[in-house]
């Protein structure tokens, strides 16, 4: 569904990503793990159109999107839950969700999706009138998921969803991602520093090191790989 070939992204003259090729398909979780500064966030920003690649190509459902505007990319069905969540702090939970549906005009569909999100995350329904900044960290992460789902995406890009959350909540978030992938019929690209966590729910994984791909393979293989265990799992 998402095909990235030989992608190179530069900040000024310095390459942040070199010759990165990644593919992700529907109904599965594809994870990209790597340490801080490996280029994971850069990769997701480039897919969403916030950064322009220097070379290489990105295709989604067969169409080139590496030169499309962020708004076009959302419209085509790629929605991102960014690092740090990037919520709108001083508007209500409900309004945050509705901004997620900004590009849609099908009132019925929007209401149906809103109900589904309230079903997945009942706490958001209870707190729909509160300002987003008054939610707890875990609740804010749920809101970020909900907002991303409101655009009716075919693919979700998740950037470090577990960061800054308590271990119990981390676990819950990963379960939620698993469930969403199955129930909502979306593909997920999950970027994580916490490799153990990410690989435990993903079906395929990539390891990114200093802007280049170091390893790739089915998640269950990577989790057994000695170098991965040593470098990312602390074993």
């Amino acid at each position: 569904m998402l095909e990235i070939k030989q992608l190179e992204v530069k900040y000024d003259l310095i390459s942040a990503l070199r010759e990165v090729s990644v593919s992700a398909s529907e109904n599965t979780i594809t994870t990209i793990v790597g340490s801080n500064g490996a280029g994971k966030t850069t990769l997701l920003k480039t897919i969403s159109g916030l950064l322009r690649p220097a070379s290489g190509e990105i295709r989604f459902l067969g169409n080139r999107i590496d030169n499309a505007s962020p708004s076009k990319i959302v419209k085509m069905g790629i929605s991102q839950v960014p690092e740090g969540r990037e919520l709108f702090p001083r508007i209500s939970v409900y309004d945050n969700l509705m901004v997620g549906a900004y590009l849609r005009s099908d009132k019925k569909g929007i209401n149906r999706d809103l109900d589904r999100i309230y079903h997945h995350f009942p706490i958001l329904k209870d707190r729909r009138r509160q300002l987003a900044r008054n939610l707890s960290g875990g609740e804010q992460q749920m809101l970020a998921f909900g907002r991303a789902l409101m655009s009716g995406p075919k693919m979700l890009l998740l950037d470090e969803p577990s960061i800054g959350l308590a271990p119990v909540i981390e676990q819950k978030i990963m379960e939620t991602i698993s469930n969403l992938t199955q129930e909502e019929d979306v593909g997920v690209v999950l970027v994580e520093q916490n490799a153990a966590l990410a690989l435990s729910i993903a079906s395929y994984g990539y390891v990114l090191e200093q802007g280049s791909l170091a390893l790739k393979g089915p998640a269950e293989d990577l989790i057994k790989d000695d170098s991965v265990r040593a470098a990312y799992l602390g074993l």
């Binding site: 959302v74 919520l87 001083r90 508007i91 945050n96 509705m98 900004y102 655009s151």
Partner: peptide, 23 residues
């Protein structure tokens, strides 16, 4: 209005707004 909501969202978080497809 949807446009007004998008204006408020942009004022509060530009990156967040761009990622929702707001131009």
């Amino acid at each position: 209005t949807d446009l007004g909501r998008a204006v408020r969202a942009t004022a509060q978080n530009k990156t967040g707004a761009m990622l929702q497809g707001i131009s």
